[in-house]
Design a protein around this nucleic acid. Structure first.
Lengths: 342, 342
DNA sequence: TTGAATTACTAAATCGTTTTAGCAAAAATA
DNA sequence: TATTTTTGCTAAAACGATTTAGTAATTCAA
């Protein structure tokens, strides 16, 4: 009934547990254990269904083969897909994943990092919320490796896998411009995070390069919240015919905003793309079967997840001090559907 | 630089680590530690930023305060939302969550359970794939508590939180019948899992109760796959005007099927609900902003997740042998949108 | 003034590994 | 034959907590 330990195997054969440990860890040759005993140990281990106690191993070696994933919300498909990739790549290397949803709340992420730090994880993959600079800075001074994804803090030197948000927004806005839209709005979120800021900057630059003045009234920065009334109000303001800042296109900086926005637009009886064109970041299923399928900035989630794990593991496995810091910037691609007309 | 241990605090004060452990575990009164020393210990612990080593605790106590979550795919919003709820409820009680996506593959889930069993988790929440009866049976004979969600095996007695799938499908089909649909199809997936079977049975019963013969050709059982061509073909067959089994409505048993199905329907230039009415299980965002927002069978995901954790933790915490097995069946609700006409 | 009870603490075992240091016997070399 | 080397193994410490079984000093009761 009780789980078998190294000691059980040792007693069973009348040998030391040291020997058993050597054999089971493939160090038989290194420590010159005889072939004979070797096979016996392996037999008995199988017979007693020996499973190493990872906790005991962890205590002794200081490694748990677990990585901690801190993201905004695992229920958000963007992070769900990322989580899936991370899990898969980690499993490939024998690592497990513990996840926490920080809800864009620095207090939560602080608690979560602290919790994981209690010698439970060998490294982190983090999508840090705003105001968590101190936490990341503290981590970077410690000796547990980590990789940031989706967002970073320019003033902190650390591993990071990002996407070229400026370029992505620039291209998306340009797409709208090429299709003749002139009053392009940007609906974004006040996370005060560099990725969101970059998106808006890319949007602005595209307008400037097309000699179209940036109108601050066309930029709607909404608070992060699960309440979609705020989006509805912003949309109403943007599409109102009599409004001084009537828009003919909207670039949504996140899909959550976009989905809510489209809901609002439909509720107002407006047609996409005739009344208003839409481009959005991220590529959820919703956009594929939408009233008018949405043109999107597609992020290479697979690559982000995979690369993050690879960099993290290479850092975890290196014994000779911290490795070289890696900052990787991936390109996005624009998937053109019907929401911008043609 | 190195983390502080109990011993560090003990040495710092010239007391035993036993004492420090007592104080930090709130057993000071029980073991009559003087107020004086008590406060000193707490001071030093804070000063040295003591964080207990959970691995060491785990080794000694046999508890890791971690629960293992095995689901089909964390990237699927259905499981993502479930995961989020589970994480949240677990955190409320000081527990962490390790997750694994089994991809409906029993070999994967077997490996994942084995991995977690290596004394890493105190209990499991599992959504078992088909052909994993043996794994669940083995678990039920062991002494690590677990709870099944979403699916179960009728022949295995164990904790489970389910939804009344028969009733849900019955109500959904009935809804279509009341709106005058007579040739109702069911598109489902061959998971050979009781939840899917129940859905189709509920669908059939609703037809029978309305004196409509069940036509097997209207029931499309697709293999589980990430390839959506199969769905496209099934849809084509169902909506083809000249087809002998032309349908005027479809009940999708999962949202993945539904989303792909709607994509196919749109591609064929058909209108929902005029050409064909739609009801689907699950309630993803996609259905809210769809061409014609979809009427859905909404599952109480929050309640499922929360209850699963609560039952699991009560089992984990009980010391007096296994608790009473709990089988909970929750009701779904039909959210009526526009995809069935009116 | 002695014995019992209480107070305030500690030593040491334990959980299941890994790993260093070392030992005895056999084989090889001088 | 004596010394060194190799072979095949083991003892014991260590990781950092928890917990049982104590002990010495003080207080109390008789």
């Amino acid at each position: 009934m009780k789980k078998t330990s190294l000691n059980d195997i040792a007693k069973h054969l009348g040998v030391s547990k040291t020997l058993v440990s050597f054999v089971l860890n493939g160090k038989a040759k290194e420590f010159r254990i005889s072939e004979d005993i070797c096979t016996k140990v392996l037999e008995v281990a199988k017979e007693l269904n020996y499973q190493p106690n990872r906790i005991a191993q962890g205590l002794r070696t200081g490694k748990t083969n677990t990585i901690g994933l801190i993201i905004a919300d695992i229920a958000n498909p963007f992070f769900g897909i990322l989580g899936r990739e991370i899990e898969q790549e980690a499993a490939k290397h024998g690592y497990r994943v513990i996840f926490c949803s920080s809800d864009e709340n620095p207090d939560k992420s602080r608690a979560q990092i602290a919790m994981m730090q209690q010698t439970l994880v060998d490294g982190y993959i983090i999508s840090p919320p705003k105001n968590s600079e101190d936490q990341i800075l503290a981590l970077s001074k410690g000796n547990v490796p980590f990789v940031l994804i989706d967002r970073y803090f320019p003033e902190i030197e650390c591993n990071q896998i990002m996407v070229d948000n400026f370029d992505a927004a620039y291209k998306a806005t340009n797409h709208l411009l090429k299709l003749g839209r002139r009053r392009i709005a940007n609906v974004t979120i006040n996370l005060d995070l560099i990725n969101m800021i970059d998106r808006t900057e890319g949007y602005k630059q595209a307008l400037r390069d097309a000699n179209i003045p940036v109108e601050e009234s066309l930029i709607k920065i909404l608070p992060f919240s699960h309440d979609n009334k705020l989006v509805a109000r912003a949309i109403k303001d943007l599409v109102n015919k009599s409004s001084p800042h009537k828009a003919d296109a909207i670039l949504f900086s996140t899909s959550k905003l976009g989905i809510n926005g489209i809901e609002s637009i439909s509720a107002l009886g407006l047609k996409i793309p005739d009344d208003i064109a839409i481009v959005s970041f991220d590529n959820p299923d919703a956009y594929k079967i939408c009233v008018s399928p949405v043109t999107v900035v597609n992020q290479p989630l697979k690559e982000i997840g995979k690369t993050a794990v690879q960099i993290l593991l290479s850092d975890i496995k290196r014994s000779d001090g911290p490795g070289k810091i890696q900052k990787i910037i991936l390109k996005t691609d624009l998937i053109i559907r019907k929401s911008c007309g043609s």
